[in-house]
Simulated assay, not measured.
Amino acid sequence: MTGGTGKTGRRVAALLERRGLPARIASRSGPVRFDWADESTWRPALTGVRGVYLVDSQTDRAAAEVRAFTAVAAELGVERLVLLSARVWAEAGDPFGLATEAAVREAAAYWTILRPSWFAQNFAEEPLIADAIGRGNLRLPTGEGREPFVDAEDIAEVAVAALTGDGHAGETYELSGPRALTWGEATAEIARATGRAIRFTPVEDERYRAELAASGCPDDYAEITSALYAHIRQGRGAALSDGVRRALGREPTDFSDYARRLASGYARHLGESDLGESDLVRSADA
């Protein structure tokens, strides 16, 4: 799988292994080398593989890369492709994200596309968000906009179902949690679960960009995240999706369940309730 060390990829690999199914994790620096920018790494990574979990390069070259990659995959006998896309790309009509989806649909293999909402795990595994929560104050320009945060474990379970089971070929699953929460409400749930004083402070977009610049973040990161947060602020991402139910026959995991799991992970990692600034990231990876 590409992106096998990322938020969803490592969970897909772990779930496959728990089910006794071999998973080949391909990355730029791992034992199985894979680099979207180096086509010589594609064929060795794909040889002997029957299904691929695809996380694209997130660049303007992604669609062309995926189209070329799927041609090599078909030549080598790959039967199933599962693409991690994003619900926001469809909602916003993003040309790059939709072009990558189109490239997968054109492939000579059974394909499934996953369009998740924002991951619940971003609160612990997205460095800038996790560090802010670790300091006790998350400041974002999301206003009162709502998002139905999806648990990355649910995404992984849907991906594994599509890679190994029947009935998922040709499906585009939009994946969300069962409730749309403001970022303030989600932050409060994490605070209650962990027993820590964590607050959410809504800020204006201009202020958010200025704070990112002061912290040394690159301009392109500020541009991308500012647009994503504006999408939430405008209420464009609040709708619930039925993809988890359609794919797995059950309701998606609630954010409160994720928060309790996260708090339990803190306790196991630290042996105490007082968390330091970077413990969110460390405990999530433990």
Rank of each mutant, 00 (worst) to 15 (best):
Ala120His: 04
Val49His: 04
Pro95Asn: 02
Leu275Cys: 09
Leu240Thr: 03
Val150Phe: 09
Glu171Phe: 11
Leu270Cys: 12
Asp279His: 04
Pro252Ala: 14
Thr187Arg: 10
Ser264Lys: 13
Gly145Arg: 01
Tyr173Asp: 05
Gln234Gly: 08
Asp257Trp: 06
Thr182Met: 01
Glu251His: 12
Gly184Ile: 07
Glu277Pro: 03
Gly48Leu: 03
Arg246Lys: 13
Ala230Tyr: 10
Arg192Asp: 07
Arg18Phe: 02
Arg179Lys: 15
Arg105Thr: 14
Gly51Thr: 04
Ala99Glu: 07
Glu277Met: 13
Ala286Arg: 15
Ala92Tyr: 09
Val158Arg: 00
Leu83Trp: 04
Ser283Ile: 05
Ala222Trp: 06
Arg282Tyr: 15
Phe96Glu: 08
Val160Gly: 00
Asp220Tyr: 15
Ala107Lys: 03
Ser241Leu: 00
Pro218Met: 05
Pro22Ile: 12
Arg246Pro: 05
Leu248Ala: 09
Thr112Pro: 01
Arg43Asn: 09
Val158Gly: 01
Pro116His: 06
Glu185Leu: 07
Gly177Glu: 06
Arg282His: 13
Thr8Trp: 11
Glu39Trp: 10
Ala169Glu: 15
Gly93Val: 07
Pro127Ser: 02
Glu277Tyr: 04
Leu240His: 06
Leu76Thr: 01
Val66Asn: 08
Thr201Lys: 04
Ala210Thr: 14
Glu91Ala: 13
Ala13Cys: 07
Ala238Met: 04
Phe123Arg: 03
Arg196Leu: 11
Arg246Ile: 01
Thr70Val: 06
Ala267Ser: 15
Ala210Val: 13
Gly271Trp: 08
Ser40Ile: 04
Ala238Asn: 01
Thr5Tyr: 09
Tyr258His: 00
Arg139Val: 05
Arg87Met: 12
Arg199Ala: 10
Pro252Asp: 03
Ala286Met: 15
Arg236Trp: 14
Ala188Asn: 07
Ala230Lys: 10
Arg209Asp: 07
Tyr258Pro: 02
Met1Ser: 05
Leu76Asp: 02
Leu140Pro: 08
Glu251Cys: 08
Leu83Gln: 01
Gln58Phe: 15
Glu171Asn: 13
Arg146Trp: 03
Ala286Thr: 13
Gly195His: 09
Thr47Glu: 15
Gly184Glu: 09
Arg282Leu: 15
Gly93Tyr: 04
Gly271Ser: 11
Phe119His: 00
Arg268Val: 14
Gly216Tyr: 10
Glu277Asp: 15
Arg192Val: 11
Thr2Gln: 02
Arg43Asp: 05
Asp205Pro: 07
Glu223His: 14
Ala286Asp: 15
Ser85Leu: 07
Glu211Val: 02
Leu262Arg: 06
Arg196Phe: 03
Pro252Ser: 09
Gly216Leu: 08
Gln58Gly: 12
Glu147Pro: 03
Asp274Cys: 08
Val244Asp: 03
Gly249Ala: 12
Ala130Asp: 01
Arg207Val: 13
Ala191Ser: 11
Thr59Cys: 02
Gln234Leu: 07
Ser256His: 14
Ile133Cys: 03
Thr47Pro: 04
Arg67Ala: 14
Glu204Ile: 01
Ala62Ile: 10
Ala108Gln: 12
Ser40Ala: 14
Glu65Ile: 01
His231Ser: 13
Gly6Gln: 05
Gly145Trp: 00
Leu248Met: 12
Gly276Ile: 07
Phe34Ile: 05
Ala263Cys: 11
